[in-house]
């Protein structure tokens, strides 16, 4: 039986440490105006970047929930 910490720690580390890297990058591009939000195309790409991060997190979380709560007793099938 794997522990809850062992199960959830990778997700927390991935989006904790990875999230810090992401936020540092985002802060730098906004402060330096490499992403200039006065420009429509840059606003679009900023939305894409943040949305992409949310999408990846959502997919990972969804697979976690499916793994733990849909057919939780893995190792046996039907038929």
């Amino acid at each position: 039986m794997i522990s809850a910490v062992s199960i959830w720690m990778p997700l927390i580390y991935q989006y904790g440490v990875g999230g810090v890297v992401f936020l540092i990058g985002l802060t730098l591009v906004l402060r330096s105006q490499a992403c200039d939000i006065r420009r429509r195309s840059d606003r679009f790409w900023l939305f894409v970047v943040v949305g992409g991060m949310a999408l990846y997190f959502g997919v990972h979380l969804a697979v976690y929930l499916l793994a733990l709560y849909v057919l939780p007793h893995g190792g046996r099938g039907v038929g």
Partner: peptide, 14 residues
């Protein structure tokens, strides 16, 4: 159903 729970998790053990 045949995949054990740890094989369904999208990350390896920590």
């Amino acid at each position: 159903a045949y995949l054990p729970t740890e094989a369904r998790i999208p990350f390896a053990g920590f």
